[in-house]
Design a protein around this nucleic acid. Structure first.
Lengths: 337, 337
DNA sequence: CTGAAAGCGCTAACAC
DNA sequence: GTGTTAGCGCTTTCAG
């Protein structure tokens, strides 16, 4: 290894003790301005960088937080990651990112790594609301905040009001004239899927319409699953006059299935989805329930840092608003223009 | 912190010295089978997990490799990441992932973190071939392997033959009947961009055609840039009869620009691109130069691990093959079927 | 306000 | 073969 410069070297050059160097570097107030100057000069001159391993070993605390995400390929997470990184960095923490890929086994493995590395805390978008196990972290007293989705365990969470968001979207479809709204729902054991389905049901009930179980098809929150689910709905003899896809990737799959059948929105049926999709620019302008992703990441990090600092209050559940953006895919008027 | 069990606790329970426990855990052969048994039993019973910080501090070597990627949102990287993780895990290393977002500043920051954390090695998809600075890593003697793109510095790399790949694609377009092939090229200072542009030129030269600089427009390897670049080409009075987009996201932008103008491939013009795009299923089937992404990640990791183990030979440059997959977007015959 | 000394948990020499 | 000892680089009492 590159004959690294240690705190002793700095101390020698500055003609002080290692303890004083440590104090300066840790913003300990009670150190003479003159010595502080000398230390900082020596640090600068030698290009000294504290060894984080040694520091962690001594203080029994790392300054890294783990961010375990359920599908890194989903653009939904990109700006969320940025929110986490910005907030973490502002407090001197670094972030390590992992992708569970909606796979419980991988998720488990990353949680284990987080425990073994004694990370300061973990932000988790759980692969399952009932089967994700955070026991190892709890055992090591490592705080956890879930994002986007919740889990059974009693931990902090940050998410949007998925019920209200979905309900808005479906109510909008109904107001625009839809009578038979099909839904491409998410997997059984993911909280966002359950909530969005609940919002769908609520909208129908509010409009005095019956909930037809035939119009509810589950996908896996990915493109393929959305494609298959949409195909089933589209191939029904009594085809729905509107579709609501419970996340962005399944909406892509839905568009795919529609294209195969020569169907377009809003001409052949109305279409709405969830999550931002500006990256799919060549698709028709889509009506979407959009989430404040950056904000979710930022808030989750702040909550986590508060826990790390020692908060032991009851679990907090922050619920942000999701907002419906109406665009051409569900808007007969706008389309006519 | 959760009153962690240390090597001394294990030693006490097994009635041996800490050194013996350490030997057992590090697969040191010369330890009596009986003691080994006792140690393993104690480890099991106490649920002992070695403290990686302490180990690193002592051995001056972490078992973590950094993976810094230029655009995490690009699906190109998803399977590559998997290749890295699989290979790393097989050798007992863990991977931390970071996203530079094509931003030199962020990249710099992550490289700094990698140096500070004394990572065992770094796999890097550099944001720039000339301006990416790996000096800090070199100074700490941390090995680096670049993937996808190369940089000026003398480090190992794994990439495909971008010149040949692009050349194949453009030759195919010419064979299918194109006479004026426009190219949406990548940014000036990225090696893949330069290579793919070179392949484009080579194909034209081989066909005895002049290279018209008006038909070369640069994008930024992202959707928006591709959109703008394609728009410029499509709005020319003498519109190209084929387009080659130098990466997947710019191909999306190109499709977008075509859709705006009511153009489709292959009817109005032939279209080819680079990188896998199965995630954009609802687009027309696209002719693409595809890369063995998983393999790139796996090989890069193996090279890195070899360096970590102490290889000091000259830098190695692995070049894999990229293969052209002809699909409907450039195939008038297939389309007619 | 500053320094000396101890020790975080582990491994590698060195004895036995 | 196994145990004892020292020390990786840092922070934090405890004296002064």
């Amino acid at each position: 290894m590159g004959s690294r410069v240690t705190i002793r070297d700095v101390a020698a050059v500055a003609e002080v003790s290692p303890a004083t160097v440590s104090r300066v570097l840790n913003a300990d107030e009670r150190v003479a301005p003159e010595l502080r100057e000398r230390v900082l000069a020596a640090v600068e001159r030698l290009g000294y960088r504290p060894n984080s391993q040694a520091r962690s070993l001594r203080t029994q605390a790392t300054r890294v937080i783990g961010l375990i995400i359920s599908d890194i390929q989903n653009p939904f997470f990109t700006s969320l990651v940025r929110g986490v990184e910005d907030a973490a960095q502002a407090s001197g923490y670094s972030v390590v990112l992992a992708n569970s890929d909606e796979d419980l086994g991988k998720e488990q493995q990353y949680l284990r790594v987080a425990a073994a590395e004694q990370m300061a805390g973990v932000i988790l978008s759980p692969a399952s609301s009932s089967r994700t196990r955070i026991g190892e972290l709890v055992h090591e007293e490592i705080p956890v905040v879930t994002i986007d989705r919740r889990i059974a365990a009693d931990v902090d969470s940050v998410a949007v009001d998925n019920v209200a968001g979905a309900r808005q979207a479906v109510e909008h479809l109904l107001q625009t004239g839809a009578r038979r709204v099909g839904v491409i729902a998410g997997p059984e054991d993911v909280s966002t899927a359950a909530d969005r389905l609940e919002g769908y049901r609520a909208a129908l009930r509010a409009a005095g319409l019956a909930v037809d179980p035939e119009l509810i098809v589950r996908g896996d929150f990915r493109i393929d699953g959305g494609h298959r689910a949409a195909a089933r709905l589209l191939d029904r003899p009594d085809r729905p006059d509107a579709l609501f896809a419970a996340n962005n990737l399944m909406l892509i799959g839905t568009l795919d299935a529609m294209a195969e059948r020569g169907l377009t929105a809003p001409a052949d049926l109305l279409l709405a989805g969830f999550d931002e999709m500006s990256w799919a620019g060549f698709a028709p302008p889509l009506t979407l329930v959009e989430q404040p992703t950056y904000e979710i990441g930022r808030l989750a990090t702040q909550m986590l840092l508060r826990r790390i600092a020692g908060g032991t209050a009851a679990a907090e559940h922050v619920v942000l608003e999701a907002t419906l953006k109406v665009r051409a895919s569900s808007d007969l008027v706008r389309r006519a223009v």
